[in-house]
Design a protein around this nucleic acid. Structure first.
Lengths: 241, 241
DNA sequence: TATACAATCTAAACAGCGTTCAGGAGAATA
DNA sequence: TATTCTCCTGAACGCTGTTTAGATTGTATA
């Protein structure tokens, strides 16, 4: 029976210690799992392997995470704080165009540096999440949503400042398209960056090349002709042999 | 003048029949599996379920496919012939720009119409293929490689005809970037097309909108200013203020 | 016709998976 | 001291892909 209400605030000294120990173990599980996950991919991460690594029984993990999916999600979300910080840092730039480029660069760099996390966040809802009978509405990672919001705000600002070609009026649509383009470059790099056939007949092509090409074409396509004074005469763009 | 060789080719009547029956069963397995796969996703396709559907024991399938992965690959490749046909059909168009647009459209339409196959082909090498100790070099789907080749040839032709902005000299790089952009739009639609949050603050945005926006910005960015005679009036607002 | 043969399918099992559950050890509380 | 609570384990459940031994069967050869 419940004897009294003080359940809410009694930070007993031992309660605090327990809470701290719990957080410690939770962190250790996540660290071990993350290392496996990043190195071997989603399929290879096994609760039994994790348990063996932390010298617990498999069942013990269920006291800290309610499922394997839950654990992986927790890892992924934690790591993405870093991405979000990079993106939000770009918001300090006053020039919207410049800000867009830097945001894209931060996003792309994080993506290729954390391919497994990137795939986990962007692809899985469809690909490897077990779909039960209820095709539940997908809840976005708050991080992703916030990053997307920053992109949207920047595009909106650019449009309001008249930097975009007049035919692009809807910041949502422009932001979504920009996102899609960068997403494509990242996905291609992640899933087949190692395959030389994807480079067609120029084995020298790098991720940076593709990113810069996309940046160039998006700039030229989306933005208004720059005021003549600003544009440098950078014609001799290097192309690979 | 050997009228019949000892063992090498004797298309016995019963041998022919067996071969035909074999192909028939192989086809039935693939059909059943495809239906499940398209409806429920990769994870939900179970050899036991397939076996139950064709009224065989699970082990029987191993006489026709050497593994589950093998079966799914066979299905995917077969279906992609259709995509390849659509893309190659575009090669009849003489105008390279127009051809690029139609190829992109065919590719995109196939992708959103066959999301599971699309993901299976583009994402899995990294995502759900079990990686053993040997990180084997990925062998591309011949179909994909051929489609990519067609794209490459078209871009090359366009560059040679002087249709592209001079700063884009490498057809491989241009083709890869075009591909990446379209890939991104498709992936976004497949993995989160149903999620309204991905539409940011305009719930009306459709896949077609994003595709057309990408087409527009790629045209404006990659292609040279069209020859004055061809271009309609649309360029009225060139001078900025 | 009888025999050897090859193909085909099945039942059973194996090792692995995520997950659940009854219970035990030990600390915190009463 | 007695009771409660938290943490952890061993064992099990039901599932997975895959392998193996054996039964069945229809064909080709002696």
């Amino acid at each position: 029976m419940k004897q009294d209400a003080p359940v809410s605030q009694t930070p007993t000294v031992s309660e605090l210690r327990r809470e701290r120990e719990r957080a410690e173990i939770t962190g250790r599980i996540m660290d071990v799992a993350r290392r496996m996950f990043v190195r071997d991919g989603y399929e290879a991460v096994t609760l039994r392997k994790i348990a063996r690594a932390i010298e617990y029984s498999p069942a013990a993990i269920y006291q800290y995470f309610k499922s394997k999916e839950d654990l992986v999600k927790a890892i992924s979300e934690k790591d993405q704080q870093e991405l979000l910080a990079d993106i939000l840092a770009c918001m300090q730039l006053t020039n919207p165009q410049e800000r867009l480029v830097e945001m894209a660069r931060a996003y792309a760099q994080w993506g290729v540096a954390h391919p497994n996390h990137y795939l986990l966040q962007l692809v899985p809802p469809f690909a490897w999440e077990k779909r039960k009978s209820t095709p539940q509405q997908q809840v976005p990672a708050p991080i992703l949503q916030e990053a997307l919001g920053a992109l949207y705000e920047t595009v909106k600002e650019g449009i309001n400042l008249g930097r975009f070609n007049e035919k692009y009026k809807d910041p949502s649509l422009v932001a979504a398209t920009l996102w899609a383009g960068i997403h494509g470059v990242i996905m291609l790099e992640i899933t087949m960056g190692k395959d030389e056939w994807a480079r067609i007949d120029n084995p020298e092509i790098s991720f940076e090349d593709r990113f810069l090409t996309l940046k160039e074409v998006f700039s030229d396509g989306f933005l208004k002709e720059p005021s003549p004074a600003v544009k440098p005469k950078n014609r001799g763009r290097k192309a690979k042999k």
